Simulated assay, not measured.
Amino acid sequence: MLVADDLTLVREGIRALLSGVDDVDVVGEAESADEAVALARKLQPDVVLMDQDMPGNGLHATRLIKEAMSATEVIIMTDRLSDGRALQAIEAGATGYVLKDIPIASLASAVRAVCNGRAFFHPEITRKLLEKLGHLTREQRDRLRVEFEGLTPRELDILFELARGSTDREIAAKFVLSEGTVKTHLRNILKKLGARNRTQAVAHVLRKGLID
């Protein structure tokens, strides 16, 4: 893992705390966004732990890293929770969003999660976003249907369920489909939206419905 933060104490503290975690190794440290991109290209880490507000813009660095190394996952660190900022991080390509005061065991879990293709977000952010999505007005829902007119009605229904936090099994049960069919629909959704993963697909829905 590459740790990117402008504060030496933060970088060295994370490295020291993770030294006792057998399956997580810190391979480098960066103190600016530009250095983070350069080191990521050089070291090819599985994960970059990126300060959202570091000099040079952590989100811009995240975009550059994901464009150059799609297999490298990015977890954004922040010192304040904001659903808007979290959406910006997701759209930049991050698959994790955590507070800087996260317990080290939880940080290790976040690293493992993104390495295994899952997203890891602070539970309060997830709760806020899903709560807002559940209270969209009819006008907002209609606008979303227009916005995503390239999707079939079934794909749109599945995308909305995904944004609500439903699992493949729950989606399959609701629409009386096999899980394999749901996965096929999800692959088509990602392709049509130009999203790298499910997290980014959900971000499209949340941002269009809640922010625009």
Rank of each mutant, 00 (worst) to 15 (best):
V74K: 03
A108S: 07
H185R: 01
R80I: 01
E149K: 14
T181A: 14
I76R: 10
V48K: 05
N57Y: 01
L87M: 09
V205F: 00
V98S: 07
E149L: 11
R80S: 13
R143Y: 12
D6Y: 10
I76E: 10
S82T: 00
A173E: 13
A71K: 14
K191Q: 13
A113Q: 04
F175L: 14
K192F: 02
L162W: 04
R207N: 15
T184A: 10
E147M: 05
E161S: 02
L210A: 00
V21G: 02
L107Q: 04
R141A: 15
V27D: 01
A89Y: 04
E149V: 12
V47Y: 04
S178F: 08
A163E: 09
K191F: 11
D23W: 03
D168R: 11
K128M: 15
G20L: 09
A172G: 08
V74Q: 02
V26T: 07
R80L: 10
A110Q: 12
M1D: 03
A36R: 02
H135L: 10
P123K: 11
R80V: 12
L186H: 06
R11I: 09
A86S: 05
N188H: 14
F160S: 11
V10I: 15
S109Y: 05
L159P: 08
E179V: 15
G180E: 13
I102H: 05
E170F: 05
E155I: 10
A68D: 06
A36D: 05
R41V: 11
A16E: 08
K208Y: 11
N57M: 03
D5H: 07
L7H: 15
D46K: 03
P123I: 12
L129K: 03
L17E: 04
L2N: 04
V27R: 01
V111K: 04
D22S: 15
V98H: 07
G96R: 03
E170A: 12
L193S: 08
L99I: 11
V47F: 06
T8Y: 09
R63C: 10
I14F: 04
A94I: 06
L87S: 02
D34P: 00
K183E: 14
E139S: 15
V182P: 14
E73V: 08
S32R: 02
S106R: 06
I104R: 06
F160A: 11
A110L: 13
R187G: 04
V202T: 13
T152G: 15
R80A: 10
D79P: 00
I211P: 00
R145P: 03
R118W: 07
G56L: 02
K42H: 13
K66N: 09
L130W: 07
A173T: 13
G28Q: 04
T62P: 09
D212Y: 07
H204M: 11
D53Y: 12
C115Q: 15
P153T: 09
L7R: 14
L107K: 01
N188D: 13
S82I: 03
D212C: 00
S109I: 00
R80Q: 12
D46T: 06
G93C: 02
D79L: 09
K183D: 14
I158F: 08
L7I: 13
G20D: 01
E31W: 00
R138N: 15
D168N: 15
E155G: 12
G150C: 13
T199C: 04
L87A: 05
Y97M: 06
L18K: 01
N197R: 13
V111C: 02
E73N: 08
